[in-house]
Design a protein around this nucleic acid. Sequence first.
DNA 1: TATATTTGCTTAAACGATTAAGCAAATATA
DNA 2: TATATTTGCTTAATCGTTTAAGCAAATATA
Lengths: 343, 343
Amino acid sequence: MANKKKATIKDIANVLNISPAAVSKALHDDSRISEKTKKAVKQVAKNLNYQPNHLASALRKGKSNLVGVIVPRTNSNFFSSVIQSIEEVLNKEGYNIIITQSNESYKKECDNIDALLFTQVDGIIASMANETVKLDYYEKVKSKGIPLILFDRGENDLNVDYIGINDYESSHMIIEHLVNQGCKRIAHIGGFKRTRIFNNRIKGYIDAIKKHNLPLEDELLIESSLTIEDGRAKMQQLLNLENKPDAVYVAGDYAALGALQVLNENKINIPQEMALVGFGDEPFTALIKPSISSINQHSKEIGRLAALTFLEHMKKDVVKQSLNKQILDAKLVVRDSSDISSN
Amino acid sequence: MANKKKATIKDIANVLNISPAAVSKALHDDSRISEKTKKAVKQVAKNLNYQPNHLASALRKGKSNLVGVIVPRTNSNFFSSVIQSIEEVLNKEGYNIIITQSNESYKKECDNIDALLFTQVDGIIASMANETVKLDYYEKVKSKGIPLILFDRGENDLNVDYIGINDYESSHMIIEHLVNQGCKRIAHIGGFKRTRIFNNRIKGYIDAIKKHNLPLEDELLIESSLTIEDGRAKMQQLLNLENKPDAVYVAGDYAALGALQVLNENKINIPQEMALVGFGDEPFTALIKPSISSINQHSKEIGRLAALTFLEHMKKDVVKQSLNKQILDAKLVVRDSSDISSN
DNA sequence: TATATTTGCTTAAACGATTAAGCAAATATA
DNA sequence: TATATTTGCTTAATCGTTTAAGCAAATATA
């Protein structure tokens, strides 16, 4: 198979003995080109198997039609679902997305940002790594005038668009539910306080516990990296307490899975002896025994809103970033692990 | 924050009163530029916060330094791990990757290919959708002279590079293992025959069963979409048989998980009454009770080889595609679901 | 000292598409 | 019929970078 040269606008022009400019206009249905010429141009384009050179038009127009997406990992239902939704919306508008993973590493995240800027993306949609506390690289994006939209893991300090769920309220919902199930001593395995969303979940937990006059004790509130392994460790820690809790609210589904394993291994009756609620509504929560109650974060909607927000920026000529939060109400999905009444 | 113009090579040239060409060469450490000038150029570049315009150089050089990756979904440990590995290798060489998902849909896959070609990627690394049987779009990629590398789900007919594991042998390993555990009636919930890898697993199953003089019956060999739901359905089907199997080899971990649920729900003793082996070594196989034996596909290595194969193509000026298979030996990871002897 | 080579740049064209400006012919308007 | 407008194109510049070709000055070689 020979490596034949790609056809350009010039080739089409030569065939028809018209100028390349006319061809360009014909392909874009310019009103100043006759229908006859348009038809001819399109026919020749098809014959020559012409594909527009995106790099050339991007250079000329100063727009790449590429959008960068940064997530901690794609290997999670939440993120892959958000991405899918972003893609759906943006593809329709002629944009392509470049997905990158930070693997929760600040350094990798910075590298990703550099790579995306280098590729001349028209915008960046990101969810920050656990590790990220310094915001210099994100400031860099902002200072270049490139639209930046954060979702899930965001930072108020950056003063950019943010789409997420109401973490504080979600904690309230969970505690409310557990109280209704008759739980009287509720623990929380939370994420790192430095990450805003986890901090909000912790605050929500504290306030809800206070509201219901339940015991609010240091030993019941634990910070965790929320991996499966750490979920196991922190659950074990709770089981070692003199005064064990009768319910645990874990701020991530993977950690909740780890916790569940430990409970199973210790033959603890779920949910009677210990109720369990996770966060994220990963598909596996519905698939294991017992199934885990969890919070659905409306991943599709988050992706859709992130993409639409980007498109809004593109419509305006001046990029003026400001803290513009779009907060969705999450949904508690009650499953076996906390459904005491029906058992 | 004003939308300040990006600095170009010309701006640097103006500051130093030299030509843009000299600047370009200085930035690329051309031997014909004096050290003094190079230093000055780099300093000014830094001061002006100069970032090279990738689109311009890509256009000029006829290379975008972008590589397209197409996977059925990113939401699987295997694929996300392959992608991570590809990214690692290619980033080092100055390439960025564009990840797209087909969601197992032929149409989406075609759209993805079009989008990638439009973006002028330098190559495509892909794993085909379940649905894909027509190869026209992949032929299109080939005919454009763009390197195409397939992994996992590939097609011999395309005559391009392929990286995968030895599916046929893997089936043999599994059957061998189950026979060693004392199983005498082994069923196979396989993938669709039309997909080469699943067909190979089926062939391997058949030949291994014959080799060990075990019963090879139609009712023991079932085709499946390998989703969790279908795994449940097909396991149920096997349980409804008069003459039930004492072991099931499922060609995908998610379907194996579905099968496991049904077995648990029916209080069937695993592995004594029914042994179970999956395929893919998804992390959850190690995390559930009982843990599921599975085949590790060396995802990292597959990604690495795919990336290296692409880089090989780039080194040669003429892209000459041919069927070049790199087959890795998979590894059977024995876990509780098929570990009868130690129980 | 005369010639050859190397050094350190410049000039100008190119990559392929887009677009402002312009111009002749066709058509509309007065 | 004379002028204004519209139509349908062309010309040429442009986006920012790269690179082949060239040229003068500095240095090396004979």
